[in-house]
Design a protein around this nucleic acid. Structure first.
Lengths: 245, 245
DNA sequence: CGACACCTTGACCAACGTCAAATCCGGTGG
DNA sequence: CCACCGGATTTGACGTTGGTCAAGGTGTCG
């Protein structure tokens, strides 16, 4: 049923870091934002820039966890699979987001690019050592983990108790809010992922996602522009839908 | 539909700490396990023991987050509510578990006792200050948060993609594994929570939980002894069910 | 012994999934 | 510029799982 071909595990091209971290666009929203210049230098010594083409994985569930990543640009999705191919996307990552926080020996999920993504890659062991030296780094990490935990709990509520319409409304608003936080325009919402990814994130099927969007369009709440862009016509209606009906 | 009376917000009785942390039963599985005696003393100075009767909340979703807790004995449940009363339990907590890790200003969920529970309560602000002094404490915290994150992702997979039978099988095995980790006997599984709590944890209804347990009983996979105890007759069958079928 | 809360069971229903067929688009090559 | 290809999306008809509503049991505690 949910079977699909898995992205091949191509080696990821490594690019020498061109610009120094100081001028990094997303520094302020990332881990590195908290560091003084000298500490940043330590980080920089261990970083490599990698990129993932759409459909290409940075790592797979179960792989030994050797690196952690920071998303610089693009969109990534994290997912888990059941043995029969059913898939659940546990999250989408946007610029500034951090990846591979688990301090475990293997990755708990696959990370795959939705759109061409650029990532900073850090050797996990060295980063852990650096955290012992720079408590602020660990503190930042903990703050980040706490945020993710809160988001995960909201997502559990969505998956366990919300209707299809509520899930779609929540999702669209999440994308809009995320864009706003990154300083991007939020009204025609940029929706970089396809229906299948939305479905696997929301615990639905592509058909239900599609039908629900059609319903919202027919109610005049949204309008679908070109592919990958949805305009919100009645934000308050979406907000009302998010949590009840 | 899911409406139910909320536990009244009774003041929690505070008990002076009788026995020192050194002899605490759960020290080895808790945060405090990592600390040297002198550091433990610092922690101890700020701790209070509180208890929650079944149905009583230690705190509610949205309350200002003034304390963090460690479960010493008993079982707690954490839940979130939608405005119309639909409820999702995001987790059950057992002895040694930590509560209120989020470094936010308000609690993201309600924490309520399933069974009489004893908790260690720490003032959140002072604990955060202590973490700045004792990096190991923060490190422990981060490890804990990472574990919770992994568990949350597994739960999302369950809620988003598993069938009722798979959810129940996963749940029973989780309880058994948890008991084993605490050094308790795992075969007649102790199930301290009622069907309604199981349902709200698994994204089902009490009726479906009940019917599914009946099905498992009729297949000879489990046997229900007295209330609050389920015997596993065919563990392998349960394990097979957990992820497909 | 009776009350009450919890659990189980049954009959029915609806939301969402499944299967299959259009339709829409974006890209490509003539 | 236009025809065509192929994947993504939409739509339709129908099926199924799990939810809803409503009785009955069952055990526990006073």
């Amino acid at each position: 049923m949910y079977t699909r071909q898995l992205a091949r595990h191509l080696p990821i091209p490594v690019v020498k870091l061109g610009s120094p971290c100081n001028s990094c666009d997303i520094r302020e929203v990332s881990l590195c934002g908290a560091l003084a210049d000298e500490e940043l230098e330590r980080l920089r010594q261990m970083v490599a820039t990698v990129h993932c083409e759409p459909g290409q994985a940075a790592f797979h569930e179960g792989d030994p966890a050797e690196s952690v990543f920071n998303v610089v640009s693009g969109t990534m999705k994290l997912y888990k699979l059941l043995p029969d191919g059913r898939r659940l996307i546990t999250g989408f990552l946007f610029p500034g987001d951090f990846l591979g926080i688990a301090l475990h020996d293997t990755y708990a999920y696959t990370a795959e690019a939705v759109e061409l993504a650029h990532l900073c890659r850090f050797p996990r062991r060295r980063l852990i050592l650096l955290m012992e030296e720079i408590p602020l780094l660990e503190h930042r990490m903990l703050g980040h983990a706490a945020d993710e935990l809160v988001a995960a709990q909201d997502q559990m509520l969505l998956l366990g108790r919300k209707t299809a319409k509520e899930r779609i409304a929540s999702f669209l608003l999440m994308l809009a809010e995320r864009a706003a936080r990154l300083g991007q325009r939020e009204n025609p919402i940029r929706v970089p992922m396809g229906r299948a990814d939305m479905a696997d994130y929301l615990g639905l099927t592509t058909e239900t996602v599609s039908r629900t969007l059609t319903q919202l369009r027919n109610s005049g709440i949204i309008a679908t522009k070109d592919r990958g862009r949805i305009e919100v016509k009645a934000r308050e209606a979406l907000v009302a839908l998010r949590e009840s009906g």
